[in-house]
Amino acid sequence: MVKKAGGAPGLGPLSRLRRVEGVAWRVIGEEAVLVNVRSDEVMHLNSAASFLWSSLDGRASLEEIALSMTGQYDVDADTALSDSVAFASELVEQGAAEVVEPG
């Protein structure tokens, strides 16, 4: 079951998200450009945001993604996790990602 984008869910370390199908995207260098054809918006993501976005496959939890982020970036696990949860909430609010409910 998928919680549709548009709300502001209480995301946590175990939350799993996936990219919404209506969003076209491309990684350019280390950054990403997203085009949401439903909301007529173009989004530019910096390097860490692009890493997180690319990892939203609906299977990995935010905690797992944050942990892999610590291997790529000079950041500690706690900071990576809190930043990842905050940014994931932004993506859901923008309608670019949706929460995959367990079960």
């Binding site: 918006e41 530019h44 000079d74 950041v75 930043d83 990842s84």
Partner: peptide, 20 residues
């Protein structure tokens, strides 16, 4: 310095532009 080959970290951020 134990950062090894890891990249400099910047908090994940996005900028949003509305399509005309």
């Amino acid at each position: 310095d134990d950062s090894g080959d890891r990249k400099a970290y910047e908090k994940p951020q996005m900028s949003v532009m509305r399509i005309n």
